[in-house]
Design a protein around this nucleic acid. Structure first.
Length: 437
RNA sequence: UCCGCAGUAGCUCAAUGGCAGAGCAUUCGGCUGUUAACCGAAGGGUUGUAGGUUCGAGUCCUACCUGCGGAGCCA
């Protein structure tokens, strides 16, 4: 007897197989039953005739609660009436555990209820589809970087100090001797490994203790950060463009069924191909001013500020591809950004704004190379010099132009899936008011 | 942290200041091709918490709690 996964059933038409799974839903009609089984790879409809099985099998399946653990043995048969095109004529079945009163019924539920039952919600079709797309995106990210010559060189999660000194950090007691902080970026360590390996990336959890409460924020999220030695802002933009395009292509290729479940407009993903529009900050501001004059933007944007969420949405809304905004004012960017040699008030940084209001998915740029400049920046930002001594070493010993970016995986998943909220893009989201389950 | 909205059965929601309701889920019964199956019946309530106004509060007022949406900050 071969044990088969549901997504492989089409290869076993006419054969007798065993499927092991959980009861998804049942329809019963007296002497005929249609239990639907899911096994993690898909859902299949089973057909049970009362006369075709032993009485105890019929009784066991009858009135069985949703999500009970069941194995069935039967013959695979193509049938137009079956969702998915194939069904199983059941000859025998075994109930491993009878589940009663499964809380998530095949009806509508509110967000709070579903989030409280996240450990069970993951079993539902839509969540299942999202997390499979996430899996493919993570896979595509690793494949792309590995094939492009980047070396995975992960950076620490427990760190002694703020990397950028701006956002709030989660504090951890380190053996009662000192405070440690959960990493909010692998950026600075990446610069060290890039000087060791040339092209590197880190990919792991990132923590931000910001009291943000929007559909784009998690307190714990996954970020991939490539960093290249001997590279410039243009190299970062070229990489971002190829990177996002390859991810979109992989999702389209490998997850058409899941995109259908999510009712994603795939033409939006097909549009993600190089080249992406590149917008100097000055031009972006001009677009915002035009928007204001047309009455499409409430307030007139002041040159020099960072873009707020409505600004990003307005700018990206004018393109059907991701937009790369570069040369931001240095004042709104991190201290380690390289300055524009022609206009010192600008930083060689770039934000990639995703279309459809998904906001900033990538942020990056060229890093400062000068020891003196960084020493001055540390002073201006009132950062503890001792903590950054090792970082300054990177400018003492073979300092070269180098650049990189960070991409938030969950924002990418939300974008690719066309989701309203980032909370569904990670199995167990951590948010301002959500630490459990 | 600020602004706005909400909280009624296990779930999703209704109820003009005047008897606490429906659908789904659950339990029982019926049905040999169902597609969120259908038909019939039953059980199920301290209306988020604490005060207040009123003859009378799910409904109006105040505070708090919880959640949702947005802003700021950011990926």
């Amino acid at each position: 007897m071969q044990q088969v996964y549901i997504n492989q059933l089409s290869r076993h038409a006419g054969e007798e197989v065993t499927v092991r799974g959980w009861l998804y839903n049942t329809r019963s009609s007296g002497k005929l039953m249609f239990p639907q089984l899911r096994d993690g790879t898909g859902v299949v409809q089973c057909v049970v005739f009362k006369k075709a099985v032993a009485p105890e099998v019929w009784d066991a399946l009858n009135h069985l609660g949703q999500e009970s653990a069941v194995t069935v043995r039967g013959t695979v048969r193509a049938d137009e009436r079956a969702p998915g095109g194939f069904e199983i004529d059941v000859a025998d079945a075994e109930v491993l555990q009878r589940a009663e009163n499964y809380p998530i019924t095949p009806k509508e539920h509110g967000t709070e209820f579903l989030m409280d039952h996240r450990h069970l919600w993951l079993r539902s079709r839509r969540q299942h589809a999202i997390l499979l797309v996430r899996h493919t995106i993570v896979d595509a990210v690793r494949d792309f970087l590995n094939r492009d010559g980047f070396v995975l060189c992960d950076t620490p999660i427990l760190t002694p100090a703020a990397c950028e000194g701006t956002t709030t950090l989660f504090e951890v007691d380190y053996f009662g001797e000192e405070k440690a902080y959960l990493s909010q970026s692998g950026q600075l360590y990446n610069e060290a490994t890039a000087a060791a390996f040339g092209r590197v990336y880190c990919f792991g959890p990132t923590f931000r203790a910001e009291r943000s409460k929007t559909r784009r924020h998690l307190t714990e999220f996954w970020m991939v950060e490539p960093e290249m030695a001997y590279a410039t802002l243009d190299d970062v933009m070229n990489l971002s463009e190829r990177f996002l395009s390859s991810i979109a292509a992989r999702v389209l290729e490998e997850r058409p069924e899941e995109l259908k479940v999510l009712e994603r407009d795939t033409s939006k993903l097909e549009a993600i191909t190089p080249p992406f529009p590149r917008l100097h900050y000055d031009e972006a501001v001009r677009i915002l001013h035009e928007g204001h004059e047309r009455g499409e933007m409430e307030q007139r944007f002041e040159w020099g500020g960072d873009f707020g969420s409505p600004d990003e949405t307005y700018i990206s809304g004018r393109f059907d591809k991701p937009v790369m905004v570069h040369h931001y004012p240095a004042a709104v960017k991190a201290f380690y950004m390289q300055r524009d040699p022609e206009r010192d008030e600008l930083a060689l940084g770039v934000d990639v704004l995703a279309p459809e209001g998904y906001g900033e998915v990538i942020g990056g740029g060229e890093r400062a190379t000068s020891l003196e400049f960084l020493e001055e920046q540390l002073r201006l930002h009132e950062l503890p010099r001792e903590a950054f001594e090792w970082y300054l070493d990177l400018r003492r010993y073979g300092s070269v132009p180098h650049a990189g970016f960070g991409m938030g995986i969950e924002r990418c998943v939300a974008w690719m899936c066309g989701l309203e909220h980032i909370r569904e893009t990670i199995p167990f989201p951590r948010m301002l008011y959500r630490l459990r389950p």
